[in-house]
Design a protein around this nucleic acid. Structure first.
Length: 108
DNA sequence: AAGGTGACCGGCC
DNA sequence: TGGCCGGCCACCT
């Protein structure tokens, strides 16, 4: 198994339960590289191509759907989140902290 | 091999 | 969550 940085991110994101969201920083921190949040975003860029990785559940720390532009449409990401019970207004998740899910690397 | 790039974060104004 | 700046790490050409 190639335990690459990307794969690590994928494993974390795949563990995000429905109706929950997390931030890049949280994932980066779980990986032990809190300052490498940018890398997480990079990983997502490739990850969003994979159906196994619910990239739509990953947003920045403000709860903004910054990466929505990388999805097929413009409101696709929002639709997916709303479909899971998450309210999204103006590309921002309402009660972000309430829906926030902290990655648990111990599960790996 | 080196440089540019990127869906960010935290700190400061 | 208004805006700007530096840092950090891996991927791509």
């Amino acid at each position: 198994m190639e335990a690459n940085f990307f794969d690590r991110v994928y494993q974390i994101v795949k563990q995000i339960p429905p109706g929950k969201v997390t931030s890049y920083g949280a994932i980066a921190k779980a990986l032990g590289a809190a300052r490498s949040a940018r890398m997480v975003g990079w990983a997502m860029n490739a990850a969003h191509n994979l159906e196994d990785v619910p990239a739509h559940r990953v947003v920045n720390r403000k709860g903004l759907l910054t990466g929505k532009h990388h999805f097929d449409g413009t409101n696709l990401m929002q639709q997916l989140l709303e479909s899971e019970g998450i309210t999204v207004v103006d590309n921002q998740i309402v009660d972000f902290e309430k829906h926030f899910w902290q990655p648990d690397i111990s599960e790996l």
